[in-house]
């Protein structure tokens, strides 16, 4: 337990806070990397997921692709990218985007699929255009599942971003690797506690957000408690959501995306 006390003392030491290697800098690096990764991954995965979800086409390919990506060990993916494009922030950044896409994609299309087809037919029957159906029916109803996907992706990215510094990318992982080289265990543990702290904050805030976005008309336990994947991603064969035909989608795969770190 002494180590824990030392680690907390290390975190609270004012000397460790400012500066280019200070906790403030490393936390903002970590958060900035995670934020942009999730942003870029969302830019790719959400439109794609919506097209798949709305049209129902390409689902099997999406399921297969997400499953395949998830089966990869995170560290292996990072290493192979780093080897081909060099050490630095770019390699972990690309790897993180690749890892974040499956959860968000699954959240986006399962959000569409989870919408009762009869509701969509009803919307069409009362004269809504396809665009209105997407914007005013499918989107709001699927939002909790989409947020669930973002939640899983953010958690995974914050966790895995710890490995970025293994390839010279900075972030809180720096304390773990720097501490390892100098046998400074309190520093390693302090860095670890900070990452855990960020991960828990992300989980809790997305959990609250997920509850807030449930449309008032459908606030029922079955909708609210549904999370897209499971928690971490990598959860292998986890599935997300189910359709009317009771076919479920698997985010198969694997490894948790817990991947890392």
């Amino acid at each position: 337990m002494n180590f824990i006390v030392d680690a907390i003392r290390w975190i609270l030491d004012p000397m460790h806070f400012p500066g280019p290697n200070g906790i403030a800098t490393r936390i903002s690096e970590h958060l900035l990397i995670s934020f942009f990764v999730v942003l870029i991954a969302s830019g790719i995965a959400i439109p794609l997921g919506y097209v798949i979800g709305h049209t129902g086409r390409g689902k099997s390919i999406a399921v297969l692709a997400t499953g395949g990506i998830r089966a990869l060990p995170t560290l292996g993916l990072l290493s192979i990218i780093a080897l081909s494009i060099g050490i630095g922030l770019t390699a972990p950044f690309i790897a993180l985007v690749v890892l974040a896409i499956p959860s968000i994609l699954a959240g986006a299309y399962s959000g569409f699929e989870a919408v009762d087809r009869r509701t969509v037919d009803a919307a069409r029957a009362v004269g809504m255009t396809e665009a209105q159906i997407i914007r005013r029916v499918e989107l709001p109803l699927g939002l909790p599942l989409l947020i669930g996907g973002l939640r899983a992706a953010s958690l995974q990215v914050i966790a895995t971003a710890t490995l970025a510094d293994y390839l010279g990318g900075g972030g809180l992982g720096h304390y773990i690797f720097a501490g390892q080289q100098t046998q400074d265990y309190p520093q390693m543990l302090g860095g670890s506690l900070l990452v855990i702290f960020l991960a828990v904050i992300s989980e809790v805030s997305f959990g609250i957000l997920q509850r807030l976005v449930v449309p008032a008309g459908v606030r029922s336990p079955s909708v609210t408690s549904r999370r897209t994947e499971t928690a971490r991603t990598d959860l292998g064969r986890v599935e997300v959501g189910r359709t009317e035909s009771s076919e479920t989608i698997t985010a198969a795969g694997s490894p948790q995306t817990k991947g890392t770190t």
Partner: peptide, 19 residues
Amino acid sequence: CGLLYSIPSLPLFVALPAL
């Protein structure tokens, strides 16, 4: 269980030996 599952793995690998 949910919170436990959300702890990143590398930090947990670092922290457990201390415990």
